Computed example of a mutant assay.
Amino acid sequence: MRFSRNATKKFALKILLLIAAVVLGFWNAVLTLLVIFIFNIPLIRKAVFGKLPTDPGRKGYARSETHEYITGRFIDIYYPDCYSHAKGVVMFAHGGGWISGYKRQPNNMSWYRFLLSQGFIVASIEYSRGYKAGIELLISELESAIKFLNGKFQTKISLMGLSAGGHLALLTASRNYQLVKNVISYYAPSDLLDIWESPSIFARIAALATLKRLPSKDKNIYAKYSPVNNVHGSFPPTLLVHGLKDDVVPYISSVKMFKKLKEQRVHVKLLLHPSGGHGFEFVQRDGRTVEILQKTIAFLEEKLW
């Protein structure tokens, strides 16, 4: 079959347009990530090199294993030395504004070592990037991970997350409360509109990249995915932690969540650090930081009430 000259030209034009779209899309993604990196250098440094003051400073686990909990997504499970007498299972969701961060990041590993040293099994999850996937897919991945762990260990799971990971943990707990023992959220945006009151350009870019809309164009999507609007009477016991000097996610976000949970008569505690910024537990080694970390363990052991 012969193609006409016009058909050939049209086909060639389509190919060129497709190549151009791919190239432009690639460079747009590179430019976006470059801007995020430039405005996020202090956070990156803190995240990569941060360490808890309570970090035992050793390997901390007897053995580990990795599972593919859904196609293309993996979960690492670390067992403490006496894992036959483990106190429970903590599923940990890393931070990074939904668009960065990774499960084996040094600061996250510091948290794992601390939790392991206190006798907990730790499961750290890998989830998609928000700028590619969108918020709903990220939540569904956490839901799949908690269902996987519930089936494996035949027990309710404690959910813990930092920043964006805390936001995802709270939303996952609201939807899967029957599988969740309790939830810990460190400096999470419980009301997504609070991010737009923050001076952090990174936080705004991350929210826009993940939700795909400005709040001035569509407040409904910000409301839909804000944990404060997903509270109900069956919500699991919750621990909220925030620094009063947080210039990425305003501490008022956790205060709002605390009040909403109280209104629903949910067991909730709010711990505030008077001089803590975003990720304060990795850089501050004062007595209040240590106290908050110890109370986090007490919460997991159900000793705060």
Rank of each mutant, 00 (worst) to 15 (best):
G101M: 10
L240R: 01
F39W: 12
I75N: 02
G233C: 04
Y102A: 13
I77G: 03
K224I: 11
Y83T: 07
P250S: 09
V248A: 06
V248P: 05
P42M: 02
L214A: 08
K152Q: 11
V23Y: 07
R129L: 15
W196C: 01
Y112I: 00
I205S: 01
C82G: 06
S84L: 12
F299I: 08
H232D: 11
A173F: 09
K219N: 15
L261W: 01
R58A: 01
I125M: 13
I121F: 07
S100N: 07
F92L: 12
K303S: 05
L52V: 12
L270E: 07
R104L: 10
A223W: 11
N176Q: 14
S253E: 00
E143F: 02
E65Y: 04
Y186I: 11
E126S: 11
P42N: 08
V183G: 07
N182R: 15
G134Q: 08
S4T: 15
L137S: 13
L116N: 02
F258S: 06
C82Y: 05
F3G: 02
F3W: 13
V183D: 09
E301V: 10
F11G: 11
L239E: 02
A209R: 08
M1I: 09
P42R: 06
I205V: 15
Q105H: 11
G151T: 03
A47S: 15
L13T: 13
Y127K: 00
K295R: 14
V180R: 00
R265K: 13
V122C: 00
I41N: 04
V231H: 00
L162Q: 09
L13G: 04
L115G: 01
T296V: 01
K156T: 15
F258Y: 14
S234A: 10
S216E: 13
K10M: 04
E302G: 12
